Amino acid sequence: MSNKPVTDLIHHAYLPPAGFDAPQPGIFKASTVIFANTAAMRARDWRNKNGYTYGLHGTPTTFMLEERIASLEGGKHCALVPSGLAAIANVAMALLKSGDEVLIPDNAYGPNKALADGELKAWGITHQLYDAMNPADLQARIGAKTKLVWLEAPGSVTMEFPDLPELTRICRDAGVLAALDNTWGAGLAFNPFDLGNGVAVDISVHALTKYPSGGGDVLMGAVVTRDDDLAERIKMTHMRVGLGVAANDAEAVLRSLPSMHLRYRAHDIAARELALWLQARPEIARVLHPALQGSQGHRHWQALCGANDLAAGLFSVVFDERYSAAQVDAFCDALTLFKLGYSWGGPMSLVVPYDIASMRSARLGTWTQKGTLVRFSIGLEAVQDLRADLEKAMGALA
């Protein structure tokens, strides 16, 4: 101990005894990491998790979350990033260069397409949109410049469920990497690295913002792979770009993971009940939910997810075309338990109206349904209360 209390506050000799254990892991926050000596400093390599070098490259908290997410997804390696979109960007920057091409489903998460049309285009990387419900269209578009194909199941907002094993097989046979946005499946509905008959995606990205967090209060994403070489490329880009997540956010996700399966199933059960109820309403022309008979791609969902019988808590409805967009907006505004807000997977039910025609390629013609679409994310409220809220808001359509 020194003679100056201010020094002792920084360099105090006390260390807590080893051996403490509890149900929740500890939180380790750091930018600077302390080394015992110069030999230890030179020997450590954060890439294989044999030690710690700098907070941006991992702490015990983030390493633990990476390992658990990799196991959840059925993968081997995981990199944590600040959001689901950052996970998509990490993959693109790691695997694509000027002159390459990436193929994206027309019904993919919109910011993925915006990234391709913005930064990737500026870097000399081209892209094409393809019809995910038509494997032949994907096969026809893969060319010599194609280096990466994005997959998504189900499609964003319109909820079509593709033949994911067949799309992945096409990529494999063409020698092109397949990356899946697995946020909806969340590692629970199906295993992206075991789609049957030896078919597996190369990379799975996951917005941990949604079901793994479960609270609507954390932004985080993950990139998962089983391939050592791909993991190295992703991690090196991750390091060079300076991607990282806060320890408190990682701890929040770690705390929520044990209840994830229970929450996911509760969201799913409530969503199916409300989707079936809305299907019988005269105001609704169509309900879009992959687990419902008649929904586009239902048999593909059944083949891939039927064994687990899981389908998340999302669905969309198309209102009868006699209702204008303004009337549908009035319906959304009249809801009280359902809040207007983006994202999903949290405890609160959400609703968003969409202009789908503006979000889909007219050239591909993948969306022809008339009427305004509204997407619902079902939370953890009592289903009876949510149904009453929906029924009351229908009066605003008049």
Rank of each mutant, 00 (worst) to 15 (best):
Pro347Met: 11
Gly379Ile: 08
Ala136Gln: 15
His298Ala: 09
Asp355Arg: 15
Trp301Tyr: 12
Ala140Ser: 15
Ala291Leu: 04
Val245Asp: 00
Ala153Asp: 04
His12Glu: 08
Pro165Trp: 08
Arg255His: 04
Lys235Arg: 12
Met159His: 09
Arg363His: 08
Ile34Met: 14
Ser259Cys: 12
Arg240Phe: 03
Ala396Leu: 14
Met159Asp: 04
Leu85Ile: 12
Gly187Glu: 06
Phe20His: 14
Ala30Lys: 08
Asn50Val: 07
Pro111Ile: 00
Glu67Trp: 06
Pro25Gln: 06
Pro111Cys: 05
Pro212Arg: 08
Thr237Ser: 10
Ala36Lys: 15
Ser259Trp: 13
Tyr264Lys: 01
Pro105Glu: 05
Asp8Lys: 13
Ala86Val: 02
Leu56Glu: 10
Leu364Lys: 06
Asn90Cys: 14
Pro290Asp: 06
Asp100Met: 06
Glu66Leu: 06
Thr158Trp: 12
Tyr264Gln: 07
Ala303Gly: 11
Val318Arg: 04
Ser98Asp: 07
Val224Ser: 05
Pro17His: 13
Phe28Val: 02
Gly55Phe: 05
Ala334Tyr: 14
Met220Arg: 03
Ile269Ser: 04
Phe63Lys: 09
Ala108Leu: 08
Gly198Lys: 03
Asn197Trp: 03
Asp389Lys: 03
Ala30Ser: 11
Leu9Ala: 11
Gly242Asp: 06
Phe35Glu: 09
Ala398Asp: 15
Phe331Cys: 01
Val33Asp: 01
Ala311Cys: 13
Trp150Lys: 03
Arg299Met: 13
Pro282Thr: 09
His267Tyr: 05
Asp229Lys: 15
Tyr323Asn: 04
Asp8Asn: 15
Ala231Pro: 02
Ser256Val: 04
Ala30Asn: 12
Ala270Arg: 15
Ile284Ser: 01
Arg363Gln: 12
Ala222Lys: 05
Leu103Pro: 10
Thr126Asp: 14
Thr372His: 12
Pro60Trp: 00
Ser83Arg: 05
His12Phe: 14
Ala153Tyr: 07
Pro290Met: 08
Lys49Glu: 15
Val205Glu: 07
Ala311Ile: 00
Ala174Met: 08
Ile356Ala: 07
Ala186Leu: 05
Ser204Cys: 09
Met41Trp: 13
Gly371Thr: 09
Arg240Asn: 06
Leu243Tyr: 15
Val352Ser: 03
Asp137Arg: 02
Thr368Pro: 03
Leu337Asn: 10
Gly365Arg: 13
Leu56Lys: 12
Val253His: 01
Ala312Asp: 12
Ser295Trp: 09
Leu276Asn: 05
Thr168Trp: 02
Pro135Asp: 10
Asp229Trp: 13
Glu166Ala: 14
Asp106Pro: 11
Leu380Arg: 14
Ala382Gly: 00
Gly26Met: 09
Tyr323Glu: 02
Val201Lys: 00
Asn112Cys: 07
Thr225Ile: 01
Ala87Met: 01
Val328Arg: 14
Leu180Gly: 00
Glu283Cys: 06
Pro111Asn: 08
Ala89Met: 14
Val351Lys: 06
Asp249Met: 10
Trp301Ala: 01
Lys49Met: 14
Tyr342Phe: 11
Ala396Glu: 11
Ala270Gln: 08
Tyr54Gly: 01
Phe376Gly: 06
Lys339Leu: 10
Val287Pro: 02
His289Met: 13
Ala252Phe: 01
Leu350Cys: 01
His300Thr: 03
Ser295Asn: 15
Gly215Ser: 08
Phe193Met: 02
Leu276Ile: 11
Asp249Thr: 07
Met41Val: 01
Ala22Phe: 07
Ala36Gln: 15
Leu390Gly: 03
Pro60Met: 01
Pro282Asn: 10
Gln296Phe: 05
Gly313Tyr: 10
Ala271Phe: 06
